[in-house]
Simulated assay, not measured.
Amino acid sequence: AFYYHHMLGMMKREFPNLPSYSRFIELVPRSIMPLCSYLQSIMGDCTGISYIDSTKIAVCHNKRIYRHKVFEGLATRGKSSMGWFYGFKLHAIINHKGELVSVKVTAGNTDDRAPVKDMATSLFGKLFGDRGYISKALNAWLTKHSDTRLIT
């Protein structure tokens, strides 16, 4: 709906050579590697003050879970503070300047604390998170392995 209405409709003058929606869908897999390379090139450095959070990436409405075939076997049901969803979770750590320091995509049913150890290896200083990250064991591991203190 966004591509048809906004891009092909309202933004046609600004982007006169946009491909059709079906061609756009065909081109998306080709763009994954360049987009990942670009994302890696704009990553910021840890400054000693970092923030961590996750957000849901729903792939379909809950009513359509059993008919959804695109991410079958990859996407899972998960729960966020906004309710149940079917899809993935995007976990991100940013520094105090708002620059991305680390990013990870997991299945929707992944606990928020699970990817922190992989993501926080290059961190130091203080890492601020919401109540989904409360864990004495995680705080102890971060202090020992990356000189980071988790504050929730």
Rank of each mutant, 00 (worst) to 15 (best):
S102F: 00
L8G: 02
F124G: 01
T121A: 05
Y66I: 07
I65R: 13
F85M: 07
L138D: 01
I65H: 03
F2D: 14
V59T: 13
G108I: 06
D147E: 07
F71D: 10
A120D: 05
I32M: 11
D130G: 04
M11L: 15
K144N: 10
T110Y: 04
P115V: 03
G125L: 04
W141L: 08
C46M: 00
G132V: 09
R77E: 08
V70G: 01
A75P: 10
M7Q: 12
V70Y: 01
M43L: 15
K12M: 02
A92V: 15
E99T: 02
K126I: 13
R64L: 10
L74H: 14
S102T: 01
N109D: 12
R113A: 05
H91K: 07
P16R: 06
T106N: 06
V116F: 02
A1S: 13
H68L: 07
S37D: 13
V105H: 00
M82K: 12
A92M: 15
I93N: 04
E26D: 13
L27T: 04
R149E: 14
G73M: 08
S80V: 05
F85E: 06
R67V: 03
N62R: 08
I93D: 07
I57C: 05
V59C: 14
G98Q: 12
T148A: 06
W141F: 12
P29G: 06
T148M: 04
N109S: 09
G108S: 07
N62H: 04
